[in-house]
Amino acid sequence: MRMETTTLSSVRRPISSAHGLPNEHYTSPAVFEEEREALLMAGWSGLAVAADVPTPGDTVPLTFLGIPLLLIRDKSGTVRVFHNICRHRGMILVDAPRKIEGAIRCPYHSWCYSTEGRLVSTPHVGGPGQNTADGIDKSFLGLIEVRSHVWMGVVWINLSGDAQPFEEANADLLARWIEFDKPLYHGGEDSHFQLSVNCNWKLAVENYCESYHLPWVHPDLNTYSRLEDHYHIEAPNRYSGQGTRVYRQLSGDDNRTFPDFEGLSDKWDTAAEYITAYPNVLLGVHRDHAFAIILVPQGPGQTTENVHLYYAQPDTDPALRMRNAAQWKQVFEEDIFVVEGMQRGRQTPAFDGGRFSPAMDGPTHLFHTWVAERMMAHRAAANAAE
């Protein structure tokens, strides 16, 4: 069966003559399913944060791209991701966050798994009182693990299983932010919030990548971090975003600020950077805090944004943390009407994908090009397999 077809050649042109992605890439369920495989399952996507499972035995069931997954910190402290199904009859193993004190027990027939995923018990599988059976080899029937990696506090997963190792696939970004390769401390409940947005997940990426909209969408932010203070960050096929040369630390009523990350170069005294690690993780770094926004696509026109803030020390001022979270929430909420407005605009067949400002839209154009090239390669491989 031939894959859904959209014309993408104009997206891959130089920025001065390129068009953006066609409407179907924001509205079509069929194209959404294509992108699910080609963009989100084939590479390293953000799933959650390691702080969701802070201590050994902590377990959180998640649904990502319709797939039931299980985030767990095993008894040795390693964060793992499994498909949340029993190997017997495919029953969901965990349906709510909880602490695993012993084994992960299937509620259907009581098959049990260790927190490392090993099948450890199959009661009555050979008949009443017989806990073994021919053909049931526990060593081959452990939980199905998803490749995962933790960086910048984010749990990244590769669902297809065949991407380059995370450190190779993201080598440039890891090198760019090597100074932040140190412990990050999640701020806790007051440093996590969720936004539900009526737009395709790619529009959230596109908006985050550029600073062009700052004067009109973020007027308060633009008073001290002006459009002309920003610069582009462009790494074709890997990531893109923007930086500012005039980051201003938040301070409390007593002029207290968050402690800085240790060992930073002078650049970070006033700079901050905001990068999308393709496909779905929006990251920000500053001298005194960092954040991660994990975009969870819920369908062609619906996205959940999970926002988490991190600090250089574990015990920062709670009042200042709350002010910081409130400030960022205001900024991110200011973007909602824009991305939702663009989503509504994609309903008209008169829109041809739009054009890009060669001076201002470079990071967004790079993302469109990455999507187009991945999609074209995916379609070529699917058609060759017919």
Score class of each variant (00 low, 15 high):
residue 1 M to H: 14
residue 1 M to K: 11
residue 2 R to D: 15
residue 8 L to C: 05
residue 8 L to P: 09
residue 10 S to D: 13
residue 14 P to L: 11
residue 15 I to M: 03
residue 22 P to R: 10
residue 23 N to P: 10
residue 29 P to V: 01
residue 43 G to Y: 03
residue 51 A to P: 06
residue 62 L to V: 04
residue 65 L to K: 02
residue 66 G to W: 07
residue 68 P to H: 03
residue 77 G to K: 00
residue 88 H to Y: 12
residue 88 H to L: 05
residue 89 R to L: 11
residue 89 R to N: 14
residue 90 G to V: 05
residue 90 G to I: 07
residue 93 L to A: 06
residue 96 A to V: 04
residue 101 E to Y: 13
residue 102 G to N: 10
residue 103 A to G: 15
residue 108 Y to K: 02
residue 108 Y to E: 09
residue 116 E to K: 01
residue 120 V to H: 08
residue 121 S to Q: 08
residue 123 P to M: 01
residue 124 H to A: 09
residue 125 V to Q: 05
residue 129 G to P: 13
residue 137 D to I: 08
residue 137 D to A: 12
residue 141 L to G: 06
residue 147 R to Q: 11
residue 150 V to H: 08
residue 152 M to E: 15
residue 155 V to A: 00
residue 157 I to V: 11
residue 157 I to S: 03
residue 160 S to W: 03
residue 161 G to P: 06
residue 166 F to R: 01
residue 166 F to E: 06
residue 175 A to I: 09
residue 182 K to C: 14
residue 187 G to S: 04
residue 193 F to L: 11
residue 203 L to C: 13
residue 205 V to E: 02
residue 207 N to D: 12
residue 208 Y to E: 12
residue 209 C to E: 11
residue 225 S to P: 09
residue 231 Y to P: 06
residue 236 P to W: 10
residue 237 N to V: 06
residue 237 N to W: 08
residue 239 Y to K: 00
residue 240 S to P: 07
residue 240 S to E: 03
residue 240 S to M: 02
residue 241 G to F: 00
residue 254 D to Y: 02
residue 256 R to H: 09
residue 260 D to E: 12
residue 269 D to Y: 08
residue 270 T to H: 06
residue 272 A to M: 05
residue 273 E to R: 04
residue 275 I to P: 11
residue 275 I to C: 04
residue 278 Y to P: 02
residue 279 P to C: 10
residue 279 P to I: 08
residue 281 V to R: 00
residue 296 V to T: 08
residue 299 G to C: 08
residue 304 T to C: 10
residue 306 N to C: 13
residue 308 H to Y: 14
residue 310 Y to C: 12
residue 311 Y to M: 02
residue 316 T to S: 13
residue 316 T to M: 09
residue 333 E to R: 07
residue 335 D to K: 00
residue 342 M to Y: 04
residue 343 Q to Y: 07
residue 343 Q to I: 08
residue 343 Q to V: 13
residue 344 R to P: 11
residue 348 T to S: 14
residue 351 F to K: 06
residue 356 F to W: 05
residue 359 A to V: 07
residue 359 A to K: 03
residue 361 D to C: 03
residue 361 D to M: 01
residue 363 P to C: 12
residue 365 H to Y: 04
residue 367 F to K: 01
residue 369 T to R: 02
residue 370 W to L: 01
residue 375 M to Q: 06
residue 378 H to F: 10
residue 380 A to S: 13
residue 383 N to T: 10
residue 383 N to R: 14
residue 384 A to C: 13
residue 385 A to S: 10
residue 385 A to C: 09
